[in-house]
Computed example of a mutant assay.
Amino acid sequence: MGKKIAILASGSGTNAENIIRYFREKGLDYVSLVLTNRQNAFVLERAKGLNVPCAYFGKSDWENGEAILSMLQEYRIDFVVLAGFLARVPDNILHAYPNKMINIHPSLLPKFGGKGMYGDRVHEAVIAAGEKESGITIHYTNEHYDEGAIICQERCVVMPEDTPDSLAHRIHALEYEFYPKVIDELLNSTK
């Protein structure tokens, strides 16, 4: 497998920036492209600031996927990383990257996953359910939200006094620590 990564993100892009910086600190410019489904997503500014090519595609492009797939092919992308990406990935893109597209979810799947379960909604649900632990799940992406094969999970304690914000803080720390390492391991374990 090559070493050209595309990151798909919908929001501020902290995970995207963390991944880009992780590889650059190792002297590797693996992240070749950042794509978003939100015109004003701050991830675009982060990518530009790090000199990573980036683009926005509107809803109809994400529904049929052709223009996005064409750009991924133009940049010779080998591996796709979802980092806070909140749209469904079209089937033609999924099929072009079998076992080469991963996502991170802020809970211990299969709990608290599925359509509409992201960000604070997940943390609120974890706390409301009285869970004693939460964490992150890194998994392969397939046709169903948060149902791809699990690659790894990392855990943290849910404290009795936790708020969605305090839990999110610990979850983000796990994301920043483990997501780039798992991507690195996957890239180096596949030929």
Rank of each mutant, 00 (worst) to 15 (best):
M1Y: 11
K4D: 11
A6N: 00
A9V: 11
S10Q: 09
S10M: 10
G11E: 07
G11V: 08
G13K: 09
N15F: 08
N15R: 07
A16F: 10
E17S: 13
E17M: 07
F23W: 03
L28F: 03
Y30L: 10
S32V: 13
N37D: 15
N37E: 12
N40F: 08
V43F: 09
E45I: 01
G49C: 02
L50V: 01
N51K: 14
Y56E: 08
F57Y: 15
G58F: 09
G58W: 10
S60W: 07
W62Y: 14
E63M: 14
G65M: 14
G65W: 12
I68H: 09
S70R: 14
M71E: 07
L72Q: 04
L72G: 02
E74K: 11
Y75K: 15
I77R: 04
D78Y: 06
A83H: 05
R88C: 07
V89F: 09
Y97R: 02
Y97W: 05
K100N: 10
I102N: 01
I102E: 03
N103V: 04
H105D: 13
S107Y: 06
L108D: 12
L109A: 10
G113C: 13
K115C: 03
D120V: 10
R121P: 00
V122L: 12
A125T: 05
I127G: 08
A128C: 00
A129Y: 14
G130L: 06
K132T: 12
K132P: 01
E133V: 10
E133M: 13
G135R: 09
G135M: 08
T137N: 02
H139F: 00
N142T: 03
H144S: 08
H144Q: 11
Y145I: 08
A149L: 07
I150R: 04
C152Y: 00
C152S: 15
E154Q: 15
E154T: 03
E154A: 05
D162S: 13
D162P: 13
T163K: 06
H169I: 08
I171E: 10
A173I: 00
L174H: 05
Y176K: 06
Y179S: 00
P180M: 06
V182W: 01
V182Q: 01
I183V: 14
D184T: 01
D184G: 01
E185Y: 11
L186F: 04
